[in-house]
């Protein structure tokens, strides 16, 4: 191993006859092959499937039917838009909720640090379907949460801003967005924590020493230095949230259907493969484009 290690001390790399250049390729081959065959290739077959016509019984033939994309978008743009909107709101909420917790664990928790970290990570290892089902109990009409919300007229407020349709909390936009936020919160907190933990507390003291108020210290020192974590966290939250349909199905109603749900049922129940494939492909393109633009804007190259 050491013979071939390239991370040697010198900055220049010596031309060397003894270094076995095939070693890294041998290490990469099986894993990358797996990814190429079962990740990249499926993207191609997905594209191909979307341009085929036919049906499950008689088989499909490639016809280059591009019109399917117009049809898919024409029929399902509300679900697509809704998915991006919900995912965006949930990501923002997760950032707002996750940041203080990540900051607390990284900088303030002291000897509680490990315990709090365990409490953040452990639920993440528990079936998220079961945890989402638990929210159905928590938000159900008979429970004190809804009762209190009614007493405090929170339900009226939610209804007024259009997040709920009546004075229940469950089966509403509110419940879906809350569920998405809840489910992907650990994906936000862990990268945030990782970058905030590297933050040297002396920098904050130095900022204070140089007359920055706590607010300014946060804006000019803490926040910029945590940006890699913010970018990674928002991506890791937004991407799965946009494709998710578990929350929409378990906590929502027919007006909160997300695009993932449409793709899932078109593929597995309606069996309209071309339409489903087209929708899936559109979702992929939209997400990849958004991620690329976002990453470029955020200017963080070394995300992972």
């Amino acid at each position: 191993m050491a013979e071939t290690a390239v991370l040697s001390t010198g900055s220049a790399v010596a031309p060397s006859h003894r270094r076995r250049t095939w070693v890294p390729y041998a290490l990469l081959l099986p894993g990358l092959l797996w990814l190429v065959v079962f990740f990249v290739l499926p993207m191609l077959t997905l594209g191909s499937q979307s341009l085929q016509e036919g049906n499950v019984d008689d088989g499909y033939a490639f016809t280059g039917n591009v019109a399917i994309y117009a049809e898919a978008l024409g029929r399902y743009w509300p679900q697509m838009l809704r998915s991006l909107l919900y995912a965006g709101v949930a990501t923002l909420l997760a950032l707002l909720l996750g940041y203080p917790l990540a900051y607390f664990i990284a900088q303030k928790a002291g000897r509680w640090k490990n315990i709090v970290l365990v409490l953040v990570i452990a639920p993440f290892f528990t079936s998220f379907l079961i945890r989402t089902l638990a929210w159905r109990t928590i938000l159900s009409d008979d429970w004190f949460v809804t009762q209190w919300a009614r007493t405090l007229r929170v339900t009226d407020l939610l209804q007024w801003v259009g997040l709920t349709a009546n004075d229940s909390l469950l089966s509403s936009k509110f419940a879906v967005i809350m569920g998405l936020t809840y489910n992907f919160l650990p994906f936000m907190i862990l990268p945030l924590y990782a970058s905030l933990e590297r933050l040297d507390p002396r920098l904050l003291e130095a900022a204070g020493d140089l007359y920055a108020s706590p607010r300014e210290t946060f804006r000019r020192v803490t926040w910029p230095l945590s940006l890699p974590g913010v970018v990674a966290g928002t991506l890791l939250t937004f991407i799965p949230a946009a494709g998710d349909f578990i929350n929409a199905r378990l906590l929502g109603n027919t007006q909160t259907t997300m695009i993932g749900s449409v793709i899932d049922s078109q593929f597995l129940r309606v069996l309209d493969y071309p339409l489903a494939a087209a929708l899936s492909f559109i979702l992929l393109i939209v997400i990849v484009t958004m991620v690329a633009v976002y990453v470029r804007k955020a200017g963080t190259e070394e995300l992972l």
């Binding site: 990814l35 990740f39 290739l41 499926p42 077959t45 899936s280 979702l283 992929l284």
Partner: peptide, 23 residues
């Protein structure tokens, strides 16, 4: 190639694999 699967919604990965397996 390592980053892409993490940046792809599960529903896309699942459905695309299904099309491959169908084919």
């Amino acid at each position: 190639l390592i980053f892409m699967p993490m940046a792809t919604p599960e529903v896309v990965m699942g459905s695309s694999l299904l099309t491959l397996f169908l084919m």
